[in-house]
């Protein structure tokens, strides 16, 4: 298959792929087109959904169609992105107290590290938001250090509280709803990803680098109370 690859989806989408598997180059091409489309929206564009290796271009079928949208996207492929493509560094606070981090000991055990070494490795990770999915505000990040890579649990655990800091493989996310998960729970964050701010309703944009910072229990409780 040649890339970029264009696939018509239903009556209102065009899936534009830059590769079969996630590499920094492939994802960079996704982010670049995402930004170009934001800066030069083709006629009939409704929204764009970036993912790992491809992005979905959603359009209004009453005013355009797959062929016209594909032509418009192709014409934009060589376009320079105005401004920086780096994203904005976002900070997420995390408390690693045992009752908020029920899997920390197991992760330490399975990786052969001490709990403090797991925490240090996580805080040192160069994480980036690569995609949202599953539920509002579920931002998938990559860049978990290799020393912490573990497959998912055999079976999901129920009712994992929102704000849980989860890892699996190279991925990390901070949950925004209470839900079952098979990922490893290594901490809890009071940082709101769904913000009560119409101008900026979500903390991250896809492409943003993220830094986790450690907070103690007092700061955690205070921040939770401040969120209301």
């Amino acid at each position: 298959m040649g890339f970029p690859d264009f696939k018509p989806v239903s009556d209102n989408g065009l899936l534009v792929a830059f590769g079969d598997s996630m590499t920094p180059q492939v994802h960079d091409a996704v982010l670049r087109l995402d930004r170009v489309l934001a800066q030069h929206p083709p006629h009939g564009l409704v929204e764009v959904v970036p993912a790992f290796v491809n992005l979905m271009v959603v359009f209004d079928p009453l005013v355009t169609d797959h062929a016209a949208m594909q032509a418009a996207v192709q014409a934009l492929l060589g376009t320079e992105v105005a401004g920086s493509t780096e994203g904005t560094l976002r900070e997420v606070q995390v408390c690693f107290d045992a009752d908020l981090a029920p899997d920390l000991a197991t992760v330490a055990d399975q990786t052969g590290l001490s709990e403090e070494a797991v925490i240090d490795a996580h805080l040192a990770g160069e994480l980036h938001v690569v995609m949202y999915g599953f539920a509002p505000g579920y931002a998938y990040m990559t860049g978990v250090p290799e020393a912490l890579h573990l497959p998912r649990k055999q079976a999901p655990v129920r009712d994992v509280p929102k704000g849980s800091v989860l890892i699996a493989g190279a991925q990390c996310l901070v949950s925004t709803v209470t839900m079952p998960t098979g990922w490893w729970i290594i901490g809890r964050s009071p940082t709101e990803i769904l913000r009560d701010d119409p101008a900026r309703p979500f903390l991250f944009d896809v492409g943003d680098p993220v830094r986790f910072t450690r907070i103690d229990r007092d700061s955690y409780e205070k921040a939770v109370r401040a969120n209301g």
Binding site: S10, L15, A51, N54
Partner: peptide
């Protein structure tokens, strides 16, 4: 396969 965007009706 890597996770991909989903539209309603999929």
């Amino acid at each position: 396969i890597p996770s991909e965007p989903i539209l309603r009706g999929s």
